[in-house]
Design a protein around this nucleic acid. Sequence first.
RNA 1: GGCGACGUGGCCGAGUGGUUAGGCAGAGGCCUGCAAAGCCUUGCACAGGGGUUCGAUUCCCCUCGUCGCCUCCA
Length: 454
Amino acid sequence: MIRLYDTALSTVTPLETREAGKVSMYVCGPTVYGPPHLGHGRFSLVFDILRRYLIWSGNKVSYVSNITDIDDKILQRAAQEGRDWTEVAQEYEQVWYSAMDALGVLRPDHDPHATQYVEQMVQLIADLIEQDAAYVTPDGVYLSVDRVPGYGLLARQSLDEMLIGGGDRVILGEGNKHHPADFVLWKFAKPNEPAWPSPWGPGRPGWHTECVVMSLDLLGDGFDLHGGGMDLAFPHHENERAQAVAIGRPFAGHWMHNGFVEVGGEKMSKSLNNFTTLVDLIASHDPRAYRLVVLGSHYRSPVEVTDSTITAAENALHRLDSLARRVAEVAPAEPEPAAIAAFQQQMDNDLDTPATYAQIFGLVTEINRALDTRDEQGSAGPLVAAWRQILGAVGLEVFGQAQQAPAEILALASQRDQARAAKEWAQADSLRDEIHAAGWVAEDSPTGTQVRQA
RNA sequence: GGCGACGUGGCCGAGUGGUUAGGCAGAGGCCUGCAAAGCCUUGCACAGGGGUUCGAUUCCCCUCGUCGCCUCCA
């Protein structure tokens, strides 16, 4: 079984699953109040790669990722734009999924929405109050963190240690909370805010409650894997876990967190205004380039994602696509076993995608070399098959079919062939320049000029 | 203040106690009418200072620097 770093244990351990051959995973999804940025893209790609790999390895994967469609930020945006908050949520959910589709991220098996689970959240909060783990204040219902054994597991700090520092920070809701780290489960509605009924008064759920309820509902007690960005470990995941612990339900068996996207060595974030949205990325670059960048770095390391690193990846993609075109006619074969074994071994080692990245390009060189040497063509087949299989397992698409060029480009290409046949090199070269100016690349081949998009 | 991560060649980015990461960019060569694509070759890289060791980029200590979490955040 795959070995993965577990944030709760601070070490790499085998991913133990409840049932052999089945993996249940929950990945915290977006709050839909604006377009997603590159940080959202990274976690989506990391967990998509993991999911695909687990499936490739023969597991049945149940993948749940939520949509937070009620939240202060959504209300804020709606108020700013003078429209209904549900409209805001729906719009950005659509933006989210179209970006995910463009990145080639598989849709979740379930995508629970917070607003669909309010009743169950109210029930959970009632249970917490009954357990004496939560209490009602004038502005909402809070969870008592000191009623939770082991609180601080994911923060890697005890409650006391956490409180010593950060002293100059404003503690939210301080006046009402029993303990500074207590967090809100239910917020009473202010005038003109959306509200759902509850025994304590109309209001809306706090963020940390939805994921506990939805993950346990869809995946059951003690589901296998819970993941998200590094910044969710504390407080979000810590607080989810706290609620489950407080009502005595086994929660996630394994915790996995990915590192940040950085720009100039700093975390990409809204407050630093150094973010790029996925929408912009997809509009200006080949979306596959981002997956390639994610594959090239380890998921727990920070990664620089800038125009120049994305462009470099796009260039690297050309090399892959070139080979895909070249091997389009290579006869199918059984994948080279050694390559597949190496792939599996490195991926099982805490998802070592950088090794796989190097392997993918290593195979490109090997295959090209075999193809350059006519009599070694036989050896290319198994390598090509392995290459394709590995690409598929990590969700990286390559384009072997050159895009059909418009008639005018094809006409130029055929004129060039005539010029070349007549050895009118100047004429041939100027036709090539013309083709290039139109955004296409002309390459010689045994069957004449081939054109592909630049 | 607490906890944690990191500092690798022009850029990105892996990894290891002694032998090639890989990609992008660059240089030379082969191929080509010339190119492109491809192949081959090439770059005295591991923040600084100590220590352990036959040998450290890789282990230990210190210094400097950067970043993250502790507050909404992927």
